[in-house]
Structure formats: C-alpha cells, structure tokens
Write a protein that binds this DNA or RNA. Sequence first.
DNA 1: TTCTTCTGTACAATATAACGTCCATTATGT
DNA 2: ACATAATGGACGTTATATTGTACAGAAGAA
Lengths: 184, 184
Amino acid sequence: MEDIHLILAKNLKAFRERKKFSLEKVSELTGVSKTMIGQIERGESSPTITTIWKIANGLKISFTSLINQSQPDTIVIPKKEVQVLTEDNGKYRVYPYFPFHDERRFEVYTVEIESGGFLSADSHGEGTEEFITVFEGELMIQVNNMDYTIRNGDSIRFKADRPHTYQNSGETITRLSMTIYYPA
Amino acid sequence: MEDIHLILAKNLKAFRERKKFSLEKVSELTGVSKTMIGQIERGESSPTITTIWKIANGLKISFTSLINQSQPDTIVIPKKEVQVLTEDNGKYRVYPYFPFHDERRFEVYTVEIESGGFLSADSHGEGTEEFITVFEGELMIQVNNMDYTIRNGDSIRFKADRPHTYQNSGETITRLSMTIYYPA
DNA sequence: TTCTTCTGTACAATATAACGTCCATTATGT
DNA sequence: ACATAATGGACGTTATATTGTACAGAAGAA
C-alpha cells in the first residue's frame, strides 16, 4: 500500500481541483497556512492529526475522505453471481454482496434462514456493530444474554464484538439485510 | 466537540488497557517510541498522520477507531417507531432506521415503492456511494444516463454523487434495503 | 524486608511540522 | 504591449513531534 501521506496528497489535490480552490482559499477556509497546504499536496510533509482535522472541518469533508482511495462508479451484483455461504445444513445462507475491502469499513450481506435454522457467531472483532433489517419472516437475535425478536419490517443494531446467535423463530423463511461495521 | 488529539488519547489508552499492553509492548508492535505513545495518551502531543498510521497498522485496528467516540451496545428499531418519509404521493416511502450520525459514515434505510412509484434524487454529496439490495419486486435505477434493473435478491452499488432515479418497474410493490456511505 | 523487574514520565537532542515573507510565473485587464 | 493581480513554490524561522536515555515509583519475587 501507498504511503498514507501520499494518499492524503492526492485526495487533497483532487478535491481542490474539483472545487477550483486556490491554496489561498483553502488556507482561509481551514486556518492552515498556504505553505502547509502546498507541502501536503506535494507529499513533502506528514501533517499532524490536528492539522488534518482543521482541513476536514474547514472544507466540510470527512476525515476518511482524505485518506481513502477511489472506486469504480457503479456495479450491479446479481444474486446468482454471489457465492453463497451456507451453515446449519443449508438452512442458514449468507450472500456477501459487498464484502469488506477498501476503506469504507463495512460489509453488506443478505441472509436467508429456513424455519428452525440457526447460527451461532463469535465476536466479529473489537468495536464491531451490526445493523439488521428483516424483510420477510422473523428473526431472533441472542446477545448479552438477552433475546430480541425482530419482525418483518423492523430493525436492530447491536455491538457484535461479543458472541451472538441468529435464529429463525417463525414458521416461514426469514430474509434479512445485514450491514456489519468494523471500526476495529 | 472535543479536540481530536484528546479523543485519540482516550481511545488509545482504552485499547491498551483492554489488551493489558504496556507502553513498551505497543512501542514494539508499532515502531513508535514508548515516550511518544505516552505523550499521545496524555494528550500532550498531536502526532502526525504517519505516526498514527503506524500505530493503527501495528495494533491491527482501523484508523477511524482511534478517532471515534463510543455508542450504546444494542438497539432495536420497530418499524412503527420509524418516521416514514413519503414522496410521489405516498407511492415512495423511506424508513430511515439508522440515520447518519456518529462517525461511522453511513446510513441504513428501508424503501418501499408501489407499482409505478418514482423518485428523482440529486447528488448526495462528494464521493457518496449507495448499496441497494432488493427483497421484493424489482427496481430500476437510472444513473450516468444508464438504466439498471435490479430484481428480487440482486444488489447494486453506485456512485451517488450525481443525479439518479429510483423507480418500481414491476407490477407489485418493491421493497429494498439501502445503505448510503458518505466519505465526503 | 530487601532486591529486582516493570512501568510510566521527565528531560535533552534531533528532525520535521507549520508559518510568514519573498519571488517567479501565469493569467487577466486595460 | 504593459501593468496588475493571482497563484504556487522557495526559504528562513519558530514551534513541536519524535526519539533515546535516565529516573522515580510500584509491583513482584526471594
């Protein structure tokens, strides 16, 4: 991977060109000197976190947009092209549509659980969070020694940095959308 | 909001305590001096982005986990508690389950579109991306002067920093999950 | 109780971030 | 064609990041 300060250099330069801002303009907006902005864009300096925070706030962009790399514009993922992962003798099926990569820090899955289907999961890692919306059937989540029943149309968000289970507690198939966010 | 270097101080300290690492240990893992790690944790220094990158990589955690603030563990969102936003005379309904806040940089919605329902959207902002999975019916997305038809079970990801439209091109209701990611 | 080890902080030296000023080049206006 | 304004970069100075070493206190072992 490229050095972080070179990624920062490219992103800041691209932003300034897109907005047609001068170094002077960025300096005024951010409170960081024109010289420093120039040095950052040329990759000649590794600025402190405080300086980058001032730049992000002044330009009203996120911190991470300054250290990310770019992606293709549009991509369609047909279900049949997704490699399904099955558990519980096929009763629990995971479709990883948008696996974790790049710098956006989350994954998007679809999950199908047949009636009686079940999956026990360990921690997904420090500080991880899950966001689930049920689109068909119902789901029982067990986490922190508590049961949560999520019905069609409802959602749940929970810390997934601890063991938890998913179970179809209804009589028809459960289909749900899952986003897993990984700060750690 | 608290100074960024103080947020960093707390997060690094909390991580080290959770792992029961000494300053020496962190120094070995990251290649950053023990003195520096100590100064960062006491909020006595605003380290450069290169130093923080070394820390994040050495400790195998994300950059953003070092500058984020913490959240409650678990929250269930019943559909009836979500304030629905309607467009197109009620034919297009948006349920914002997990709006954008905190530092995770994305929102999670459910959308329902009656047959013939339609919504035209402008850019969601610089660098924004959308991730959509269709759970019922079918969806036509128009972006970059192209049409994409997404059927039940399929997904699409596209740059949402330009105008785009959503339309139910089928004869039954369309229900979908939408995650919008905001790097900028 | 004493000795050893571990830990975090203080301190001094070095490297670099960050700023302000000046200069060369380019763009714009007359 | 010439003058002015805007822009980006060079340079010198100051402030601070970063390192290595020493030290004080706490914890652990004998």
